[in-house]
């Protein structure tokens, strides 16, 4: 919603970049976490209309001070409404006493309490891959961006895939020869299938259960080796479906994969992890209605993330599952 309207508006982007410290957060975590981050957020939200009665959502756009004073709240589709909201929030800020707005008046210390049940950080020594998903259409000889009636459903959707340090080590062996096969760890195979080969282009999709992974084949074969680089070809195929009989399944994804992976055999640092999954997807979940009728091409692209970029450190959607995210093969 916000991507298509509020935060695609040039005036709003300029207003935010010139005047605010912008932050984006997942309400699923923020309304639950019992720690400094969650308690502070709820203190701000409680000043507005979304008080989270019964654990309900507090989603929306908030403007507030570093001390926690709410300046404004709005959750609206209309760009004009949201532009006025940002401008009004700025006016409310400017009406505060100069002492409240001055630099370095408030000393915000480091976080002291972190709720381990809801804090999610990338695995130490592991790998983050950016995952992009997009509906496609077939052309006479290839594919093109897909079209659909769902607002924004044609846009690329984002997620991140996390690999553990052990999985990364398994994928980047030191002494390899051309033609050698590298075994993909089972947990990584099923994590990819269950949590990242899905249609998230219209919102939060249901994850595949372990049993709904009907076929999972991934092969990694060394294509070239020299002192500074090992090049690995990835091929694969998955059949994911809500029914054992894929033809009768209400939701499914029948998909092939191809990939090009390059790493340094001495440092085991990856310099490329480009993978594409492409196949026909069908059906929708409770929160992803508006799917195109029938079976249609859906593409998923994976590539190395930049861990220095805050957006690339956003937890995978399926990390809400906690440790189960890493035990996807069970």
């Amino acid at each position: 919603m916000g991507r298509e309207s509020t935060f695609a508006d040039a005036k709003i982007i300029q207003l935010i970049n010139d005047n605010f410290i912008p932050v984006a957060a997942d309400d699923w975590y923020q309304r639950r976490r019992d720690d400094d981050e969650g308690i502070f957020f709820r203190k701000v939200a409680d000043q507005g209309p979304r008080k989270g009665q019964g654990g309900s959502t507090r989603q929306g756009i908030y403007a507030f001070t570093a001390s926690g004073k709410l300046l404004g709240y709005r959750n609206h589709h209309d760009v004009d409404v949201m532009r006025r909201f940002v401008q009004d929030s700025l006016k409310a800020w400017e009406k505060l006493p100069a002492g409240e707005r001055a630099k370095d008046v408030l000393n915000v210390g480091d976080v002291k309490k972190v709720d381990a049940n809801y804090a999610r950080t990338p695995p130490k020594g592991g790998l983050i891959l950016n995952v992009t998903t997009r509906i496609l259409d077939r052309t006479d000889d290839f594919f093109c961006h897909g079209t659909c009636k769902f607002p924004g459903g044609q846009r690329a959707a984002h997620d991140r895939l996390w690999l553990t340090a052990d999985e990364l080590q398994a994928l980047t062996p030191r002494d390899v020869k051309v033609g050698q096969e590298i075994a993909m760890p089972a947990a990584a195979t099923y994590r990819l299938a269950r949590f990242h080969l899905l249609d998230n282009t219209r919102g939060e999709p249901p994850m595949w259960t372990r049993a709904q992974v009907r076929t999972a084949n991934v092969a990694l074969k060394v294509e070239a080796v020299n002192d500074s680089a090992v090049r690995v070809r990835l091929t694969g195929a998955f059949l994911l479906s809500t029914d054992a009989d894929a033809k009768a399944a209400q939701r499914g994804y029948d998909v092939s994969l191809i990939g090009d992976i390059i790493y340094n055999p001495a440092t085991r640092a990856l310099t490329r992890f480009d993978v594409v999954a492409l196949g026909d997807h069908w059906g929708a979940g409770p929160y992803t209605g508006g799917a195109r009728p029938g079976r249609n091409p859906l593409g998923v692209a994976l590539e190395l993330a930049n861990p220095e970029r805050a957006a690339d450190r956003v937890p995978p959607q399926a990390a809400r599952e906690g440790g189960n995210y890493f035990r996807a093969d069970r």
Partner: peptide, 22 residues
């Protein structure tokens, strides 16, 4: 950052991370 810069905060809060799948 807001305290150091003397700026207000704008928070985009959604069910599902705004920079992710929604």
């Amino acid at each position: 950052q807001a305290a150091r810069a003397g700026k207000p905060i704008l928070l985009w809060e959604m069910d599902g991370h705004p920079l992710s799948c929604v």
